[in-house]
Structure formats: structure tokens, C-alpha cells
């Protein structure tokens, strides 16, 4: 009986093994990581070194990011954060697919296509409300793509650079709405593989570079970029993280003629402090944050979306259907 059972298991093993190998999916390592998103949190802890080899693909990743001379950059000493803010941005030559007559001083009309990109904020609360609000306008079409537990930090876990390029190529958006950062508050690896510990100047420098590289990648592929900053969060932990990230987004965005930063922090703060409830444009007051104090409720999502549209209307003529 035992021999027969063992024979069965080996036949089964062979079938399962061959079946799995024949399936033409992505490589196994990113999938294992996908099942263990908590690796992100472990990386933050003392276990970091144990998992350091997971970042082996980082260099390859940068090599593959099109349009950026990573080899050259990786040899350079990172520029201190304070100096970056004072440097004169390089002029960016943009290729505008549809809004070809775009000029910051001129208003642009529909029809146009919008692509929304980001982490869980795009999947819950903000993203859906942004899409719903945009679809109320005449001639606006929207694609939204969000992924849990992702951002610009752990590019070895999920490659938003590559994914953004793909989405832009396939969907051909005129406007890109971007929101990252909720999962980026962890140690970061530079192009030279050195580690920037969270909360240090080195971390800020590396993350700033990451944001800048992302903008360089997408800015010449879309007409306008709206980089959505984080609303003021409930917890001290995220308050400290977003206080560092938001200025990076704002400053880097300002270096690109077709990028607008949407300041949600100010929209959600009351007298500079966190408020659990807020009134929307119609005066309706409701809770704005979910249980984690970062993700927004439906009401909070509507307020965020209204703010983005308010900023969009400075560039684009938008009329409701």
C-alpha cells in the first residue's frame, strides 16, 4: 500500500512540477515576494541584512530604465539635499502626444485621456473617487492602475518605472495623475547599492533622486503630470514620513514645466493640525480617514479628487457633461 502511495505521489509530483515549469509566468522570486509583502516591514528592522540579497536586482533594474544614463549617475557622489533645491533645473524637452499646443499659460480643452497611477491609495478611497469625478467631465476618459504595497522605493519588489512606461505606451494618456509614498517610508538602496537609512539625509537624497528619475522618465511621454501629495495623516509615524516626502515631490515636480504638485496636506489640515472630519465643497462634513489614518474614506477621497481637479482646471478647460 505504501509503495503504491509513494508511486502516486511521484507521478503527481512530476505532473505538478512539469505543469508549473511549463506555465509561462513571471520569474518565481518576485512572486514569492508578492506573497510576503511584510518583507517590506522586515527590511525596516534589524533583519535588513538577512534580506539584503533580495535587492540584487536593483542594479539591473536601473540599467533597464530607459532614457536615463544610470551608469554615469551611479558613479557620481549623491548631491546633498540642500543643494538640489538650489540648482537650476535642466530644461526638459517634452513631447506632448495629444495636447500638442500645451503651454502653461494657455488653457487646454477636452477631449483628453487621463492615467491614474499609484499604490493602494489608487485602489481605495482616492483613486476611485478621482476616476468618478473625472468621468463627470465632457470628453475625459480615465484609466486607473494601482497596486498594493508598492511605491518608488522598493523597485525590486515592484517596478513602477517599467509599469508606468508600459501603461503610457498602451493607454497613451495626455494627463498623468501620480500618487506614491505610503509604502516608501523604509530604508532605501542607492544606485551604488549603498543603503540610506530611513530618517537620514542620505535617505532623502536617494529618494529625491528616485522621484526625479521617475519624472524624467514620464515627463516627455505625457502632456501634464499631477503629482498628488499626501494629506496630513493621523499617526506620528506617517506624519514624520510624509513631512519629508511631500516637499521632495513638490520641489522635484517644480523642476518640470509640465508637472503640477497638488498640496493635499494643506487641504486636509485644519489650523495646521490633523482633523478627523472635513467639509466637502457642498458643506457636507464627514470622517475623512480610514482606520490606519493614512487611507481616506469615500468622503476623504472626494475631497482629494476635488482638489486635484481644482489644480487641473488651472491648465485645462473642463466642462461637466
Amino acid at each position: 500500500m505504501r509503495t503504491r502511495a509513494d508511486l502516486k505521489i511521484w507521478v503527481f509530483a512530476l505532473v505538478v512540477g512539469l505543469g508549473a515549469i511549463l506555465l509561462n509566468f513571471n520569474s518565481i522570486v518576485p512572486k514569492i515576494e508578492a506573497f510576503f509583502p511584510q518583507i517590506n516591514h522586515l527590511v525596516e528592522s534589524d533583519l535588513y541584512n538577512s534580506f539584503n540579497n533580495l535587492r540584487g536586482t536593483e542594479e539591473d533594474f536601473w540599467d533597464n530604465v530607459k532614457g536615463i544614463d544610470t551608469k554615469k549617475n551611479s558613479d557620481e557622489t549623491p548631491v546633498p539635499t540642500a543643494n538640489i533645491a538650489n540648482t537650476t533645473p535642466n530644461p526638459i524637452t517634452t513631447v506632448v502626444p495629444t495636447l500638442s499646443d500645451y503651454n502653461p499659460t494657455n488653457k487646454i480643452s477636452a477631449p483628453f485621456k487621463v492615467q491614474i497611477i499609484g499604490d493602494s491609495m489608487i485602489l481605495e478611497g482616492f483613486g476611485p473617487q478621482m476616476k468618478i469625478k473625472l468621468l463627470e467631465y465632457d470628453g475625459v476618459s480615465v484609466k486607473d492602475n494601482g497596486r498594493y504595497s508598492t511605491g518608488l522605493n522598493r523597485v525590486d519588489y515592484f517596478d513602477w518605472f517599467k509599469e508606468s512606461e508600459n501603461l503610457i505606451r498602451v493607454n497613451q494618456p495626455d494627463v498623468l495623475i501620480v500618487m506614491f509614498g505610503a509604502n516608501d517610508g523604509q530604508n532605501i538602496v542607492a544606485k551604488d547599492k549603498s543603503i540610506g537609512n530611513l530618517g537620514t539625509d542620505k535617505w532623502k537624497t536617494i529618494y529625491r533622486e528616485r522621484v526625479s528619475d521617475y519624472l524624467k522618465l514620464v515627463s516627455d511621454k505625457v502632456g501634464l503630470i499631477y503629482w498628488v501629495g499626501h494629506p496630513i495623516p493621523r499617526t506620528t509615524d506617517f506624519y514624520n514620513k510624509f513631512s519629508v516626502m511631500n516637499p521632495i515631490y513638490e520641489e522635484e515636480c517644480a523642476k518640470f514645466t509640465n508637472c503640477r504638485y497638488v498640496d493635499e496636506w494643506a487641504r486636509f489640515a485644519v489650523d495646521g493640525k490633523y482633523s478627523p472630519t472635513l467639509a466637502d465643497d457642498n458643506g457636507l462634513v464627514q470622517n475623512v480617514k480610514g482606520s490606519d489614518g493614512v487611507h481616506v474614506t469615500v468622503h476623504g477621497g472626494k475631497i482629494m479628487a476635488d482638489e486635484v481637479i481644482r489644480v487641473m482646471k488651472m491648465d485645462i478647460t473642463m466642462e461637466k457633461e
Partner: peptide
């Protein structure tokens, strides 16, 4: 192993 191979990249909560 088969589960890992068959599963999508993203596991929602």
C-alpha cells in the same frame, strides 16, 4: 510551489 507559480503577482488583503 504550484500555488506560487499559479498565483497572481498581487495578493489583496
Amino acid at each position: 510551489y504550484a500555488i506560487i507559480k499559479l498565483g497572481p503577482d498581487m495578493v489583496p488583503p
